[in-house]
Amino acid sequence: MNEQWRTAASATLHCLTGCAIGEVLGMVIGTALGWSTWPTVILAVALAFLFGYALTMRPVLRAGVPLRTAISVALAADTLSIAVMEIVDNAIIVAVPGAMEAGLGSPLFWGALAAALAIAFVVTWPVNKWTIGRGRGHAVVHKYHH
């Protein structure tokens, strides 16, 4: 595997971490509150973007970059990656019959969510490779990782 694919895998894993935190939290809150599918999905997506951007901004801010610049870096680095990941994983979990209604104690809920995130990783990886190859996406963040 060449360097760009390894970097893309790392970027996708980073994206998956933020998305998974937000996605799981949103799904848990919406499901626990008995919300219908779409309000739960909207909350999960909003939290996935929030946590995804926050995880990107953390090391950038530690590098001494001003907040406004760190926000710009996070938006440039992660928006496409998070969007693809969220579209894929939410489409899958909504498509699994009964998954959204199954409840937090159900293996169907957790299995569908885990499978959706895994598939989203596989779909998003080449997207990140493409953006990194063009000096965009997560490549924007790398100059702040030192």
Rank of each mutant, 00 (worst) to 15 (best):
residue 84 V to Y: 02
residue 132 I to W: 04
residue 27 M to R: 03
residue 50 L to Y: 03
residue 139 A to F: 09
residue 49 F to I: 05
residue 26 G to T: 00
residue 93 I to G: 01
residue 123 V to T: 07
residue 68 R to D: 14
residue 34 G to E: 13
residue 81 S to A: 15
residue 29 I to T: 00
residue 146 H to L: 08
residue 142 H to A: 15
residue 95 A to W: 11
residue 5 W to F: 08
residue 121 F to P: 00
residue 24 V to L: 15
residue 17 T to C: 07
residue 134 R to W: 05
residue 13 L to A: 09
residue 15 C to V: 10
residue 107 P to M: 14
residue 28 V to W: 06
residue 54 A to Y: 10
residue 128 N to T: 10
residue 72 S to M: 12
residue 32 A to G: 12
residue 120 A to W: 09
residue 85 M to T: 07
residue 19 C to W: 03
residue 55 L to N: 11
residue 108 L to P: 06
residue 141 V to R: 13
residue 82 I to C: 01
residue 125 W to T: 14
residue 27 M to N: 13
residue 97 P to E: 12
residue 60 V to M: 05
residue 91 A to C: 11
residue 77 A to F: 14
residue 104 L to H: 07
residue 56 T to K: 03
residue 31 T to L: 02
residue 144 Y to C: 11
residue 131 T to P: 04
residue 138 H to S: 11
residue 56 T to M: 15
residue 10 S to G: 10
residue 117 L to I: 12
residue 111 G to F: 11
residue 111 G to S: 15
residue 41 V to N: 09
residue 126 P to Y: 10
residue 63 A to Y: 05
residue 15 C to L: 07
residue 110 W to R: 05
residue 97 P to Q: 11
residue 22 G to W: 02
residue 139 A to E: 12
residue 60 V to R: 05
residue 78 D to W: 00
residue 126 P to H: 14
residue 35 W to Y: 03
residue 105 G to C: 08
residue 66 P to C: 05
residue 60 V to Q: 06
residue 100 M to T: 04
residue 112 A to G: 04
residue 138 H to N: 15
residue 86 E to H: 01
residue 87 I to M: 03
residue 98 G to Q: 04
residue 4 Q to R: 13
residue 98 G to H: 03
residue 122 V to G: 02
residue 9 A to V: 05
residue 86 E to C: 12
residue 60 V to D: 10
residue 56 T to G: 14
residue 64 G to R: 08
residue 65 V to L: 00
residue 129 K to Q: 10
residue 92 I to P: 06
residue 44 A to E: 12
residue 73 V to P: 04
residue 53 Y to A: 08
residue 105 G to W: 11
residue 115 A to C: 07
residue 145 H to K: 08
residue 138 H to E: 10
residue 86 E to D: 11
residue 143 K to S: 12
residue 132 I to P: 01
residue 115 A to T: 11
residue 19 C to D: 04
residue 15 C to T: 10
residue 113 L to V: 15
residue 88 V to G: 02
residue 10 S to L: 05
residue 104 L to Y: 08
residue 6 R to H: 11
residue 100 M to C: 00
residue 62 R to G: 06
residue 111 G to Y: 14
residue 36 S to I: 01
residue 115 A to Y: 01
residue 90 N to G: 08
residue 20 A to T: 15
residue 31 T to F: 01
residue 131 T to A: 10
residue 66 P to F: 11
residue 17 T to S: 12
residue 95 A to K: 06
residue 9 A to M: 06
residue 56 T to Q: 14
residue 52 G to N: 14
residue 84 V to R: 02
residue 47 L to W: 01
residue 92 I to F: 11
residue 111 G to N: 12
residue 82 I to G: 00
residue 102 A to M: 09
residue 144 Y to W: 07
residue 21 I to F: 12
residue 62 R to H: 13
residue 14 H to V: 13
residue 76 A to G: 15
residue 11 A to N: 10
residue 113 L to W: 09
residue 8 A to V: 02
residue 22 G to N: 03
residue 71 I to E: 01
residue 78 D to E: 08
residue 34 G to W: 14
residue 113 L to D: 04
residue 18 G to S: 01
residue 57 M to L: 05
residue 87 I to W: 06
residue 129 K to P: 00
residue 37 T to N: 09
residue 75 L to Q: 07
residue 19 C to I: 09
residue 36 S to R: 05
residue 22 G to I: 04
residue 94 V to R: 05
residue 88 V to Q: 00
residue 129 K to C: 06
residue 70 A to F: 07
residue 138 H to V: 01
residue 52 G to W: 13
residue 138 H to F: 09
